[in-house]
């Protein structure tokens, strides 16, 4: 894997060869470098397309270490894999997707985009893990820990061991004194000076089930998850 990364990076650094990479490959390379990508689809180079392109270009040029972007014509075979992945030929165009390095889609916008949206599409590593899990149809339990205390609450641990619910769940942790996750705390409205863990539960594709204290029992969590009507465990899928 590392060899491949180096290979791609080397190849892309060679003049003339970078432009030969397909948009899909360029997105993969950006992800490999830990960058967020903006994938813009268009059909014709009209005013809207140009406006969107300028906005994205302007933003990315100010954050070259964090972001990159590609512009894909839906009729061009070079971008066929991205067009098919996002069914772009059936979208109102131009349209732009924000992708985290782990492949999670952080936003999608049609016809126009602003810099606030582009900014908001840059998420922390744990946040992108949460979004990616939700996009895999997993109920996601996010533990926000106080500084220096990454211990997973017991109730959450017990929940992970639940035979019915466990396979439906994904777990993410963020620690208050990790500067990389500061924005995650802020976006999830969790105070960074918490003295005990806060447990937040989300159902796919993106609904907030609840916030629980550190001493929450697995039974309480399970009840909240089943009761949300958004659980896909065997019990809920069979309508029990």
């Amino acid at each position: 894997m590392r060899i491949e990364l180096w290979t791609v990076t080397l190849l892309l650094s060679l003049p003339g060869l970078a432009s030969a990479a397909t948009p899909g490959e360029r997105v993969e390379a950006a992800a490999a470098s830990g960058k967020h990508s903006y994938v813009m689809f268009y059909r014709s180079d009209d005013d809207r397309t140009q406006s969107m392109a300028e906005t994205i270009e302007g933003f990315v040029s100010q954050r070259p270490d964090e972001t990159s972007w590609v512009k894909v014509n839906v009729t061009d075979s070079a971008g066929k894999d991205l067009v098919e992945r996002f069914k772009a030929s059936r979208l109102p165009l131009p349209a732009v997707f924000g992708l985290a390095p782990n492949g999670a889609i952080t936003f999608v916008r049609k016809l126009a985009v602003d810099t606030d949206t582009l900014e908001g599409g840059i998420v922390t590593p744990q946040c992108s893990a949460m979004v990616e899990a939700l996009q895999r149809q997993k109920v996601t339990v996010v533990c926000f820990h106080p500084s220096g205390s990454p211990a997973i609450p017991k109730g959450v641990q017990a929940l992970a061991r639940d035979r019915n619910l466990g396979p439906q769940l994904s777990f993410v942790s963020a620690i208050a004194d990790d500067p990389a996750e500061a924005r995650f705390f802020q976006r999830m409205r969790v105070e960074r000076d918490i003295t005990s863990p806060a447990v937040l539960v989300f159902a796919p594709p993106g609904s907030f089930i609840g916030r629980f204290p550190a001493n929450v029992s697995s039974a309480t969590l399970a009840k909240a998850i089943h009761g949300s009507g958004k659980c896909n465990c065997k019990k809920c899928r069979h309508g029990n």
């Binding site: 997707f97 889609i105 998420v123 976006r187 989300f202 796919p204 594709p205 993106g206 609904s207 009507g229």
Partner: peptide, 30 residues
């Protein structure tokens, strides 16, 4: 719909805090 996960959940958290949103308005609607 899943493409909009992040937008949906941040809007949900915000509305949960402020007391609005679909879930509050419609019991049983999702």
């Amino acid at each position: 719909s899943a493409w909009q996960s992040f937008d949906l959940l941040t809007a949900d958290i915000d509305s949960f805090e402020t007391g609005g949103g679909l879930g509050r308005k419609h019991e049983g609607c999702c």
